[in-house]
């Protein structure tokens, strides 16, 4: 069994559906496998698998202009790879983006290659003035996602939710 939490993934997915999200772009990473699986199995969801995360900014922008609510599933390194698109498409054109970012590289990270991104993720979000909240505990997942979506659409700008280890990973030790 993968230690990625199926119950937390379901909770996040259901919260996105409740916000009216009907299109998700995604680039797979370990913590996102269940979320992507749920999107793929859902006939009411359009799942767009990407080659690189920045494409998702353009896809979400197009969906928004066409009246469809969307979300982006990515790792924090995918957020790093998307920054020009976020700035020069979503922020320049005042496009709401709901970004679900798996937050690798925090305390407890065992993969050496994931450890640099964690140290810069929140500083970059602040530098870009992207409002964000951490999702750590199942009890606050639904309302934080709903509130993030509300702000994204009232402000017409990107927001981020950080999918944290304590929520997504059921530790074996």
């Amino acid at each position: 069994m993968s230690p990625v939490s199926t119950s937390a993934s379901r909770l996040v997915y259901d919260a996105l559906k409740s916000c009216g999200v009907r299109l998700m772009s995604a680039l797979p990473e370990t913590w996102l496998v269940h979320l992507i699986g749920l999107a793929e199995a859902d006939p009411d969801m359009t799942l767009v698998r990407l080659a690189k995360e920045e494409e998702g900014v353009g896809i979400s922008a197009g969906a928004h202009l066409a009246g469809v609510k969307s979300a982006m599933l990515m790792q924090n390194h995918g957020f790093l790879a998307s920054i020009n698109g976020i700035v020069s498409c979503a922020q320049l054109y005042r496009i709401p983006l709901l970004m679900l970012v798996s937050y690798r590289g925090e305390f407890g990270e065992r993969d050496p290659w994931q450890t640099e991104g964690g140290g810069v993720t929140e500083d970059l979000l602040r530098a870009l003035r992207i409002p964000f909240a951490r999702l750590e505990n199942p009890s606050h997942v639904s309302h934080r996602i709903a509130k993030a979506q509300t702000l994204a659409h009232s402000a017409n700008k990107p927001v981020a939710l950080l999918l944290c280890r304590d929520l997504m990973w059921e530790e074996q030790t």
Binding site: L23, T46, E54, G58, S60, G62, A63, L65, A66, G85
Partner: peptide, 13 residues
């Protein structure tokens, strides 16, 4: 680079 991605988002929607 993102014009084609934006077009894809509209076309799917």
């Amino acid at each position: 680079g993102l014009a084609s991605s934006l077009g894809l988002g509209i076309a799917l929607s």
